[in-house]
Design a binder for these strands. Structure first.
Lengths: 255, 255
DNA sequence: CGGAATTTTGAAACCTTTCAAATTGGGTGG
DNA sequence: CCACCCAATTTGAAAGGTTTCAAAATTCCG
């Protein structure tokens, strides 16, 4: 069974390490409240093969999804064959919940690896989820803005470092990072289409990052030598989850 | 009184031509329902001088705003002085209403010209506004995705044409375009910071667009020679408002 | 009219792409 | 376990698009 395809209901399954649960908790959700709804959601999980669509552009209504396993991405295809990845989605990320009655997805969501997704737990079942979803939506938007800045004002080296740092943070949030290392199931070509570069140039710049001692990348696994130093080096300003939680709390009087 | 500063309450004021009202109507809002709440909102309008902030990054809670006159923009400043415009805001656009309890703006909203804004009409006063705001939010996200594609996969010429086409569409939506012409109160430097280019190169490419007969641009006024042909030329796929309305309607049973 | 902001020009340096082609790596079938 | 194939990574050289740095020309405004 290919990496990332492992079905949820296998023997070694432990809800406490479920990336979605870890992420929700990191976003401020009470563990108990989370586990309830999530267990149900997980039970209804279904797999999607790599390269398949999770949602397609133009479809009338896209049902919201919660990604449980594997990586997905929001991508837009241009008429001439060029493509642009808007953002990557990792386990614990929500899909298509932003604009309330989220009508049209302005981009297609595809599975980058084999994936497992499910319907997100309903707010009706666990009201505490409302805050979590709001924080998640705010983070999603922050990531879109970060992507714009990356493409508009960073050079190739900075773009690569910045994106890897973001992914590292997000994988730390959902418990999938191992310290400064993490699995990166992306080809350099996919990375290039996310960073507005060619795969050839991504390759050259990654090699340089290796030579500079900024990172290791081998066999789908990336290790950042010193994330903090790297962030400083490229002047990265990450979105702060903690501040978001505070703000979300502020508008939701604990009545 | 500088252009765009004209206070709402001047002699020639006509609510029917209020860009915000025109835009809301274009997004599917019933004229009567709109006028009510909007008249109130307009009465509470206040001016903001060019270059001032409407909302700042990191502030705990940004109150939502409705832009009535002038242009604003969401911008992010980098530590080294570079800056990136995320999107432009024109009259009729809503600010900071996306993520429900919209906690942190991940970017600063600044007035590009002198501006007049107000608190948006409350949904409580006119329930029909809920749909309008939802469609507006969906469009906002579509514009962000368009910006990503622009920066990631279009060359300088295409970026300029694509953005001008988008702005033309949006100004047509709120009634501020005159056929294929519209006021563009942006310097080439601001445009450059939105397009991820230098102002020098924007200047050169605009000149080329003029030579190619694609547009006229003089004294803050742009005329597109043939918007449809230009869109085809650069392979532009605009976000479809109509489809969005349909979708929004679909999820809001006309009980 | 005068000064500041914006637009325009030029030449050279720089970063990124292009187009092939070679190399490596992983997975499959024998 | 090896041969083989396809996908992904790597390398080179040359072309191309964009930036840089100045400085000149225009336009806008008070």
């Amino acid at each position: 069974m290919p990496r990332n395809t492992a079905h949820i209901a296998d023997g070694r399954y432990d809800l406490a390490e479920e990336p979605a649960l870890v992420r929700f908790a990191a976003l401020g959700l009470d563990g108990a409240a989370a586990a309830t709804g999530l267990a149900d959601a997980v039970a209804r999980a279904y797999p999607v093969r790599a390269r398949r669509e999770l949602t397609s552009e133009g479809r009338a209504i896209a049902e919201p999804r919660l990604l449980l396993r594997g990586w997905a991405a929001r991508v837009r295809l241009l008429p001439d064959g060029r493509r642009q990845f808007m953002s990557f989605l990792v386990p614990g990320d929500l899909i298509g919940m932003n604009a309330q009655p989220q009508p049209l997805a302005a981009a297609t969501v595809i599975a980058v690896t084999d994936v497992v997704a499910c319907r997100p737990p309903s707010i009706d079942d666990a009201p505490a989820l409302a805050d979590t979803y709001a924080v998640s939506a705010a983070l999603d938007e922050a990531y879109l803005l970060a992507q714009i800045t990356r493409l508009g004002r960073l050079n190739a080296q900075e773009r690569i470092a910045d994106l890897l740092l973001e992914l590292h943070e997000r994988l730390t949030l959902n418990g999938m990072a191992q310290g400064d290392a993490f699995e990166l199931p992306l080809t350099q070509e996919v990375l290039a289409d996310a960073l507005g570069l060619t795969s050839v140039h991504v390759n050259r710049m990654v090699q340089q990052a290796r030579r500079d001692g900024d990172l290791q990348w081998k066999g789908g696994r990336v290790t950042l030598t010193d994330p903090v130093a790297l962030a400083r080096k490229i002047g990265r300003i990450p979105p702060r989850v903690s501040a978001m939680q505070e703000a979300a709390a502020a508008v939701t009087p604990t009545a």
